[in-house]
Design a protein around this nucleic acid. Sequence first.
DNA 1: ATAATAGTGTCTTTCAGACAGTATAGT
DNA 2: ACTATACTGTCTGAAAGACACTATTAT
Lengths: 301, 301
Amino acid sequence: MEKELLKNKHRLTEEEFLQKYDASIYERSSVTVDMLIFTVMNEEEENYRKLPEKSLKLLMIKRGDHPYIAQWALPGGFVAINESVDEAAIRELKTETNVDNIYMEQLYTWGDVNRDPRTRVISCSYMALVDSASLDVRAGDDADDAVWFNVKYAVLKKEKTITEKGFILEKHIEVKLTNNADSLSATVRIIEEAEGKITKVNREIIDSKGIAFDHAKMIEYAIERLRNKIEYTDIAFNLMPELFTLTELQQVHEIILNKELLAAAFRRKIADMVIETDQFTKDAGHRPSKLYRFNPNWRNT
Amino acid sequence: MEKELLKNKHRLTEEEFLQKYDASIYERSSVTVDMLIFTVMNEEEENYRKLPEKSLKLLMIKRGDHPYIAQWALPGGFVAINESVDEAAIRELKTETNVDNIYMEQLYTWGDVNRDPRTRVISCSYMALVDSASLDVRAGDDADDAVWFNVKYAVLKKEKTITEKGFILEKHIEVKLTNNADSLSATVRIIEEAEGKITKVNREIIDSKGIAFDHAKMIEYAIERLRNKIEYTDIAFNLMPELFTLTELQQVHEIILNKELLAAAFRRKIADMVIETDQFTKDAGHRPSKLYRFNPNWRNT
DNA sequence: ATAATAGTGTCTTTCAGACAGTATAGT
DNA sequence: ACTATACTGTCTGAAAGACACTATTAT
């Protein structure tokens, strides 16, 4: 190898250089992963005829220690020195929810200096979408409580000011997490500043009730991404069970997009992404619905 | 504050807990930022009548020390303990290119264990788009050479195998970086494995000539993202000077998408994103072209 | 029979693709 | 006059929006 012969300005070969290399001279950050684990569940129905409503859920963990003791945080943990960041995320997902082999995507890396009062922590966040049917409801054998929260996303304020060379867009987004026992909420202020070609976005938590760290920011960001991606990808199917009706699939889209869709147009749009089965739903007080499964080969052939 | 009174299972208040907290018990990774700084430049023209061709450029730095001595790497550096990851990226961009206040977006965080032979390094990559006109061509006062390379992206292989429950898609992408003095290249193998709903993507460098670390992966990924985003966002304008012709704007799209576009359709599509000026190009051996500027308010009003 | 959902047919609107045709500088 | 680019008009076809209409079950 030619490489072996090259020496640097101190006349060291690569081997010699690496032997002398001391990584400890710089102070290092801790790196963690935080997981945004979403699912969609049926709410209780009352009328035997009506379809059950669905709702978007997020898994949170109650903190048993400082900092933010007794508040709720996203599941996550430190990246070990001998595992990749992705592996850490998979390990955490498995530990917290007992689910593996599921859709997961890196979201964003949060690198502000004072994210954690203990020490400098850089956090790489992942979004996971799981199908509630395949979920082992006993979420998390971990010491702390792992509980599903209902997620609501509301725009409290949206104000656009036209400036000389662009605009300033200020949005206040309220994220509400609720379940039978607890009710958490946070408001994130998002300021988008466009000046000429350059646009800068800043996210800031201006109010947080019961949500630990900067996790409200991550939740807000994840919902935005989820909404965006559901329009042009097939990620929504990760929230569906093996067999599903087209109405259920539409409901999932509607919950995430927070708007109603027209059945005819929706069915046309997702037609290629599903495969008809010969099975039907039963025991509803109305016409049965055909069951479908996901078609992984919808992009061509 | 109620918070102050809460004690953990060791009967410590938050203040006491934080005082005793020792972050050094876990071995920590280093965190770096790597910058993918793209621009578009005119190639030399020959015929006074013909328009100059444009080409996509990427800024690379020649390594002066081990590891990968004498190879080329993306500009980047360690994140200091007292700066945010974004700040580190901005600082590096300024140091390397003397450009600030420019479009920059976090791309992806690369967390494999053996990315760097020196020590465990997790790298957060950023993509920056700069307008070559506003660029101080003396790129980088840093010790090492900072040089623009021409970027070419080619699909060498694309093979889809339909499996029982999905498919396997194998792509080989060749990234070529060239300039007057040097010619670098790398092949990245991308394997997309879909089984049922779950799709896993894996990127691996199967051949690398002159490109340090796993940076070929980052380059490949950045080009994919750039291609994707240029279709539905306005990022392309970050590559344009203050005033530009629609043909120039179209050329930039064509280079990035690597395909020709029809002028009529292109103009319709970007019509709202630009503002007409009353200026024209001059001294071309053909009809002058109207100059436009970016319209930051194109999304509404 | 009725309530409630399942599913389809089709008219309209919007928008991208294609391409011919007109316009205009510099040499 | 000629060349190369600038720019527009319009036909076509694909896809999304809107909405009415038909179908089918458990009670």
